[in-house]
Design a protein around this nucleic acid. Sequence first.
DNA 1: CGACGGGACGC
DNA 2: CGACGGGACGC
Length: 519
Amino acid sequence: MAGRDGRGLTLDDPPNSRLFILCPKGTTEQEFRDAFEKYGTIEDVWIIKDKRTNEDRGIVYIKFSKTSEAMQAMEEMNGRALPGSNKGLKVVVANSKRDGSTRDPREDERLVRLFVIIPKHFTEQKLRSEFSEFGEVESVTVLKDHGTGENKGFGYVRYFKPLHAALAYENCDTSYRPKFAEPQRSRGERDEIEYHGFPHHSSAGQKRLYEDDFRGGGAFGADVFHSGPSSVLGAPRPGPLEMLADYPLNSNCSRLVIQAPVGLTQGYLSKLFNLIPGMEYCDLNETTGVAYARYSSPQCATYARDKLNGFEYPLGSPLHVQLADDSVRQEYPMSVDSNYSQYSGGFGSYSTNLGNLSSVDPMDVRQKAAMILEKAGINPHNLLSSSSNAGSVGDGRRERSAFYCSIPLPPPQPTVQEDGTNLAQRLFIVCQPSGVSEKVLRDAFCRFGNLIDVYLLSGRNYGYAKFASKTSAMKAIETLHGQSLAGQKLKVLEAEPPKSNPAHGGFLGDEGPSKKQRL
DNA sequence: CGACGGGACGC
DNA sequence: CGACGGGACGC
């Protein structure tokens, strides 16, 4: 495997496995081997000499078979002298041959940060805990859609030490497809999302949760938009208009039309939309579920739409939020909104802790929205128009029932991580007529146990579920086939083997033909 | 102190 | 009918 490409392209395979070492002239290959072999398998020692004079230039390349071996050697030998010498070595990762001798100031960046593919339901907290087994994680980032806050399916993990990144690279589950991340291009590099541990979810209480809107911790007090100009930093705090002034805009509409699940009340809907700065009113017809909201600027309104459109509470009951057509004029006197003012007093401190847009986690609004509704004790059963299932799970006191499904389902079970060998059965899923959110799918399919992943192809009404247990998969078929989820008719069949089988052509990955490819 | 060689399966 | 996803960081 190692020597497949004779012409110099194997030098950096695996990545960062070759060291560039400045050393005293005259050091012999054996001396290098003696000093470095304890870190792993040395594939090559190459002492550089001047082509013409054959003079030793005090440079040696040492190629290890594994990244982690090279990292450990670098860590321990950099600055150390070889026996019989008093001169410390300089040991760094060698550049690739074509990059030559250019010294990159962000060199370390390449050694500690991994780019990984992750399940769509992963949180930063989950990603961090998954990768902590290889060493102390400095920070993690999960990329999210700017509009919806949906996890885009990949992220970054940054370690403090190159060795730990290498161990993760080599040993993490293959489904992460780890790569050493390219350094971020421009200087704005500290943008990485610091996730400051997991502490205050359990005990610190609701208030604390809401106050911690900011990545940097709750440095800003609550009520940014309601409490006027002074901040903890003493600088005047911009109002919502200034803060959202740069939000992408292609409309001058400040008003939203909302279709809410029937059963959601005026008060809670107001609280949801008051999470976005600049809300002036939010007025719901509780009979039809249609609401209108107005914001102080088109930017605010657009931002609110992007954050809350598609928000599902309960699962399978998304809010539909659009910019209202302002050519149709309507009167919404502020005074009508007496319900809102009543609630906004109580919840004002939770709202709108947006500092500047670039530091806001797009997920925050939705997380807080979910918390508001859950904390409010809104019972999903009461929100369902087709509630054939309501109350039928008599034991469902603590367990979340699958209220969105046409029949009762067993309680949710944890999903499992795919490891390249545990895929036991794939299912083919069709949702008619249109489709259903992945959240709903996951909530339904996980209930049979051993679910690895479930998804619909983008823009399609069909997709796949992967199980690590055939029994679990068969139970899913038996139970769900012919039922409906959130009003969508479901077909669930055993999947045919994938059509595109990369059994020929390019290089196969490091795992070779696997069970996965046969399923 | 700072950047790139040598070898050459055997079906 | 309905058959195989997605991959680079708010400049």
